[in-house]
């Protein structure tokens, strides 16, 4: 009897282990699936921005721009390009981009909400 009981306990234990392991595996798989959505590829020129512009949480004296409204970013770039907004280096950089490129960069940066300032 005791033997049978212990066998049954053991079976329960292994069922529990298998169940837990399966659940854990499912969790891992689903979190891996969540992690494995690739970041949207940056449009021409946009990959360079983060060399100076950090995410809002860690930005230094150079302002964070990821997650700002696209219109705001595009307007700033166009003003820098026209030397209508004071800057140290952005006027020199903005002159390298067309209207279309600026709008694409602005849209992509605006979509980076994970790096935006928390309200």
């Amino acid at each position: 009897m005791r033997l049978d009981a212990s066998r049954s306990d053991s079976r329960c234990f292994w069922l529990w282990v298998c169940g837990t392991a399966t659940a854990a595996l499912l969790m891992i798989t689903s979190s891996a699936a969540a992690d494995s959505s690739p970041s949207k590829l940056p449009p021409s020129g946009a990959a360079s921005c983060s060399g100076c512009h950090a995410p809002a949480a860690v930005a230094g004296t150079v302002p964070a721009i990821a997650g700002l409204p696209a219109q705001e970013i595009a307007a700033a770039m166009m003003a820098f390009r026209a030397d209508q907004r004071p800057s140290t280096v952005m006027n020199r950089i903005a002159k390298g981009f067309t209207d279309e490129e600026i709008r694409a960069i602005a849209d992509w940066l605006a979509s980076r909400q994970d790096q935006a300032a928390k309200p």
């Binding site: 230094g60 150079v62 140290t88 280096v89 020199r92 950089i93």
Partner: peptide, 28 residues
């Protein structure tokens, strides 16, 4: 038409700003 070096004739505050941006760049 793009790029180039910092302007030649600017107030010292411009040089100070760029020194601070340099440090910020390294951290970023």
């Amino acid at each position: 038409g793009a790029g180039g070096a910092s302007p030649q004739d600017v107030p010292l505050s411009f040089r100070q700003d760029e020194a601070r941006h340099a440090e910020s760049w390294f951290g970023t």
